[in-house]
Amino acid sequence: MSDKVFKLQLLTEEVVRNPALKSSAFLLFAKLCELYGRCKSELLEVNHTALKNYLSVSDNRSLKLIFNNMYENKLILNEIKSFPKKKALQVHINKEMTTLHSKNYFTQVDIRLLDKRIVDQIGSVGVRLIYYYESRINRLELYKDRCYASISTISQETGISKNTIMKYNEILKKNKLIRIKKHKLEHAGWEKDGNMIDYVQYANHTYVKLENITKLIGDSDT
């Protein structure tokens, strides 16, 4: 049996760190990129009822808002105004926003992160955060095997609120997909009114445990 890991590549600035892109739209676009990678056709046919189930969306209006968010961010080229009743929904993916056609920087993660069983446990926000942390990590360089970004920076670059980031960090830690180490910065300070004010500053170091993706799928089978 092959041990090859298939990874889904998403553009870093245009998708992963796009603060105008909602996490639910991020997840849906990731699934469309997965489909596009298989069929190589820009015009994708999807079952919108199955997508609602995958995204845990209960009504068509909410799903349409997700599609509209992708359309507003130029990830798809056709605006979805309604859903067909008896045939597949056609979605025109913008190939220039995929790594098959763009040479811009990308972030890649084991495609099994998009497994429904994992999505049900960590949500679209959890998936988005894993991609974000990976976008800040370079495993080929010493001391760059972790993400140094602060909660404020993550919020600014993803559009996710600070409270939501902290909430989903706990979910990701519980599922052993990340490990966070609080790092103490010594002797930080600034000049104010002629006096040096010393303070202690903490910064999180976030490590992504990609090897636990398959373990998480296995645990959900038991």
Rank of each mutant, 00 (worst) to 15 (best):
L172C: 02
K95E: 15
Y132K: 11
V127L: 06
T164P: 01
T107E: 05
K95D: 15
Q156Y: 09
K95M: 14
T153C: 07
M97Y: 10
A149C: 01
F106V: 10
V119N: 01
N175I: 00
Q121D: 05
L100S: 09
T98H: 10
C147T: 01
D145W: 06
T107V: 11
R112H: 13
N175Q: 05
I130T: 03
Y132E: 08
M97A: 07
L89N: 14
N94H: 12
G126Q: 05
K162L: 01
I171H: 02
I137K: 09
S161V: 07
S102C: 07
H101Q: 11
Y148Q: 03
L172Q: 04
S135L: 12
A88H: 13
G123S: 05
V119E: 04
S150V: 03
C147D: 04
S135E: 13
K167S: 08
Y133G: 08
V91E: 08
N163A: 15
Y148P: 00
V125P: 02
M166A: 04
S155R: 00
D115F: 05
Y148T: 12
Y131D: 03
I122N: 03
I160G: 04
D145M: 03
K103D: 15
E170R: 10
K116D: 06
Q90C: 13
F106Y: 13
T98C: 14
Y105W: 13
V91H: 11
Y133R: 12
V127S: 02
S155D: 04
S135T: 11
Q108T: 14
K162Q: 12
R128W: 03
D110E: 09
D120K: 15
T153R: 08
I93R: 00
S155H: 01
N169Q: 02
R128P: 07
L100N: 13
D145H: 07
Y132D: 04
Y143D: 13
K95F: 11
N175H: 13
D145C: 00
D110R: 05
Q108C: 10
E96Y: 14
D115L: 05
T158H: 10
G159C: 13
E96C: 05
K116W: 06
G123F: 04
V109S: 10
S161D: 14
R128G: 05
R117K: 14
I111P: 01
V109R: 06
S155L: 02
S124F: 02
Q156D: 14
S124D: 10
S161N: 10
I122L: 01
R112V: 07
Y133M: 11
V91C: 11
I137D: 04
S161W: 03
I118K: 04
I160F: 08
D110V: 09
N169A: 02
N94D: 15
I130P: 10
L140V: 12
S124T: 08
A88G: 07
Q90S: 06
I93W: 11
L142P: 08
M97W: 13
H101W: 11
N169K: 09
N138K: 13
K116T: 06
K173S: 11
I130S: 03
H92P: 07
L113Q: 04
M97T: 12
I137P: 09
R112Y: 14
S135Y: 08
I122M: 04
I160A: 13
R146N: 02
E96R: 12
G126S: 06
Q108W: 09
I160T: 08
L113G: 02
T99N: 12
E157Y: 05
C147M: 06
H101K: 15
T98V: 14
K87H: 09
N169R: 11
K174E: 02
L89S: 09
Y143T: 09
I165L: 00
I118W: 02
